[in-house]
Design a protein around this nucleic acid. Structure first.
Length: 110
DNA sequence: CCGATGACTTGAA
DNA sequence: CTTCAAGCCATCG
């Protein structure tokens, strides 16, 4: 069990997110086996900068569809730009029709 | 080694 | 309805 195994799973799921779709930390955490470990998912995203590979962290938002992590992106609206670039409508740091673009690995990958 | 923190979630008062 | 608290696990100082 490598210490990066947890991150690897998170990043792997993140990369599995279809174009124009988004998921939540809880969904990924739940997919990993613990919905309570959603913090670790967010943590993994924070460390994604240290990860040798690109991670679509902009496709990962909180349960409310709110871009809670946009403050961690460079610039300030990089996350919103990326989401809108994929067809995801974002308003006031919040995803519109969130349930429509929500992608649950537990259901889609299952 | 120990303490504190973190891009969350859910439930209870 | 809103607000508070606890739980989860790994990384950093």
């Amino acid at each position: 069990m490598s210490k990066g195994d947890f991150f690897e799973r998170v990043y792997q799921v993140a990369e599995l997110i279809p174009y124009g779709r988004v998921t939540t930390y809880g969904a990924i955490a739940n997919y990993l086996g613990s919905r309570r470990s959603a913090r670790m998912v967010g943590w993994a995203m924070n460390k994604c900068s240290s990860w040798p590979r690109f991670v679509p962290a902009h496709r990962v938002v909180n349960r409310q569809g709110l871009l809670t992590g946009k403050h961690h992106f460079p610039g300030g609206e990089t996350m919103r730009e990326l989401l809108e670039s994929e067809g995801v409508v974002v308003e006031d740091s919040q995803i519109v029709n969130f349930t429509a673009v929500f992608w649950d690995p537990l259901k889609e990958l299952l």
